[in-house]
Amino acid sequence: MNSPDQGVVEQPARPENIKAVPVRHPGRWAGAVVIAVLLAMLLHALFYNKAFQWDVVGKYLFDSSITHGLVVTLELTALSMVMGLVGGVLLAVMRLSPNPLLSGTAWLYIWIFRGTPVLVQLVFWNFLGALWPTLSIGIPFGPEFWSESTNTLIPVFTAALLGLGLNEAAYMAEIVRGGIQSVDEGQSEASHALGMSRFTTMRRIVLPQAMRVIIPPTGNETISMLKTTSLVSVIALEELFRAGQNIYSRTFETIPLLITVSLWYLFLTSVLTIGQYYVERYYARGSNRALPPTPIQRIRALFQGRHTPPAPPVVNPGVHGGGNFS
């Protein structure tokens, strides 16, 4: 016996590579033809209908008031998401705290801000000056040290930011809480056993792992926020949607301008979707043995003449470690 494997007496001849006819998918081809026809009909209907006024769409696509509105929309989206994320993490940690004062406060906040329409909240912040004409700092029920008119303190952009950001924080709090609770209890136990404080454990061990669960819905929230900023038009802040409105209220080219604005929203959400893909990949490290190739890597592999990307390096074949960290 020259085989080290006992029980195998004779090395069988190596079988030839399999040559088989792949499974046919006639249904797919038929379906593709039907969809191609429908798509052609749709495009024809879109581009040969004069009512869409595509030349007007093109004319305003890079109009200065539209691009200015675009910048405001981006600023508003970014800042309110930052507010939402920071507030959300804070609220989630408070909500999970053993301190009843903290968890109660967080619960109350989420109850109010998630329970009322964001449109109402926007209008509320904008008209805060009508409720309290001045805001001041001082001793409660005592003397005031500093006071300022509410309308000066909260210009329309700030009101929009407060309305969107504070509302978003309530939603993000629930997303972050779900993420934190998805992390295995053994992780904080191990961290505590090493002498790490509750705060360090949260910051270094639990939150980074929770991110994997938090990121995908946060991407959704960001995309949703990008479009929700259009609500701000009701308090007359000139963002992308309001900029379009301003033009068509003058020229009555309503449909073309709504398309112009929508094209921008679609472009921005596409960019965000790509960003989300890469952020998700980053936070998946350590949880997958090897990450699947990105679309760009796949295309590159295709051009190099390989139809399948190179197999990821397998570490320790045959060993099933780490099953408990999924």
Partner: peptide
């Protein structure tokens, strides 16, 4: 006091 767990509890993101 060092502790070693049955399920290892290594930090998977590190």
């Amino acid at each position: 006091i060092g502790m070693v767990f049955q399920r290892f509890n290594l930090f998977p993101h590190m």
